[in-house]
């Protein structure tokens, strides 16, 4: 499954590629003929990046392209073409395919070069990655005066799963795992004021990781998202257990025995989370396993929890505390371990 960040990540891998033939032109020539081995390769690069990142359908709506005019027309035909005015350039997004002419004409027939938008700089400018600029793959800064327009591929929408990604990530990494990290950092209160969750582990992300590490007293290489930082970030994103001085409004003990069910009524708005603990460690029993079903205005949702006295107390934060009015807990184990609960 493709995405804009995967497309950009692929493009970044080729920074520094130079000369003809190169790996990109060889790949393209293997499908379309040796005439492309030494052909101008800016659009060949875009084609290969799209194919290698799972974005062929989005970036190449009419198939492989080496001829930029045809490629731009492909976007125009599917109504995903934006003329290169300064106002439009400021609305470009990372991953857009940007086409150039050098006479400020904005006419598709005058296009002879292409690249991918990596960052939108404002003021009618973008920072790009381009193949075959100086016969190499480089980053450039381009303005509306040299941009005929851009095509917006129908990339698969990225959606954060709400979790911190697994370690390790560091400066220079790109892609959706970096976006996961950036979203997680922002959710944890860190700031990425300029670039946000752009999938690019740059200076801003290094600073945010360093800040998070400092606040959480994590001894790990500053700015590198390692295993300790990952564990702390995931913990920071977990539902906050009530503090000692929070008012515990409801508490009790689960019914024991296999498949035993414990129904709990909650007055809407009284509690925001429910937590569990058990004493399996005393008798060296296996951890308890329970299915927790919660009811609110949208209906039921459920989650299976493992309650192990050797691990932190598991909590579920209600998705809509204002309308949460009931919890039903079913033992998924043999019911041998006594499990208590509280909600506050």
């Amino acid at each position: 499954m493709g995405s804009a960040s995967a497309m950009i990540a692929e493009a970044r891998k080729w920074l520094g590629t130079s000369g003809r033939p190169n790996t990109l032109t060889r790949a393209y020539a293997s499908r379309h003929g040796d005439g492309f081995l030494r052909a101008p390769w800016c659009d060949i690069a875009v084609t290969e990046w799209a194919r290698r990142s799972g974005n062929a359908d989005a970036v190449l709506p009419a198939g492989d392209r080496a001829y930029t005019v045809w490629h731009a027309q492909d976007f125009q035909k599917i109504k995903r073409w934006y003329t290169g005015t300064a106002a439009n350039i400021d609305k470009a997004k990372p991953g857009d395919i940007v086409f150039f002419d050098w006479g400020s004409s904005n006419t598709i027939g005058a296009i002879d070069h292409v690249g991918i938008v990596e960052k939108v700089l404002g003021g009618g400018r973008v920072q790009t990655i381009e193949g075959n600029t100086g016969d190499a793959c480089k980053r450039r800064v381009r303005s509306a005066s040299s941009i005929a327009g851009y095509g917006r591929p129908a990339y698969t929408a990225y959606k954060w799963n709400g979790k911190a990604p697994a370690a390790t990530l560091r400066r220079g990494d790109v892609g959706d795992r970096v976006r996961d990290l950036q979203n997680a950092l922002m959710k944890a209160g860190e700031r990425l004021p300029e670039f946000g969750a752009d999938g690019d582990y740059g200076v801003e992300t290094v600073n945010a990781v360093t800040s998070f590490q400092r606040k959480h007293d994590i001894s790990e290489t500053a700015g590198v998202y390692g295993s300790r930082t990952a564990a702390a970030l995931q913990k920071a994103l977990s539902p906050r257990p009530p503090e000692e001085d929070d008012e515990v409004r409801y508490y009790g003990q689960l019914n024991n025995g296999p498949a035993a069910i414990t129904p709990i009524s909650i007055h809407p708005g009284d509690a925001t989370a429910i937590g569990f603990w058990g004493d399996n460690g005393i008798q060296q029993l296996p951890p308890a396993s329970i299915r927790v079903a919660i009811h609110d205005a949208k209906g039921w949702y459920s989650e299976i929890l493992v309650v192990d006295s050797a691990k932190p107390k598991p909590w579920i934060r209600f998705r809509d505390p204002k309308t949460t009015d009931g919890v039903s807990i079913r033992r998924e184990d043999d019911g041998a371990v006594a499990v208590a609960w509280d909600a506050s």
């Binding site: 499908r31 379309h32 003929g33 005439g35 492309f36 052909a39 101008p40 800016c42 659009d43 492989d64 392209r65 080496a66 001829y67 930029t68 045809w70 150039f100 050098w102 002879d112 070069h113 381009e130 075959n132 600029t133 100086g134 016969d135 450039r140 800064v141 381009r142 303005s143 005066s145 040299s146």
Partner: peptide, 16 residues
């Protein structure tokens, strides 16, 4: 298959 494209204008190869 697309045609072999022409060489780009010099500006494509330099900072603009």
């Amino acid at each position: 298959p697309p045609p072999i494209p022409p060489e780009a204008e010099p500006e494509a190869h330099h900072a603009t």
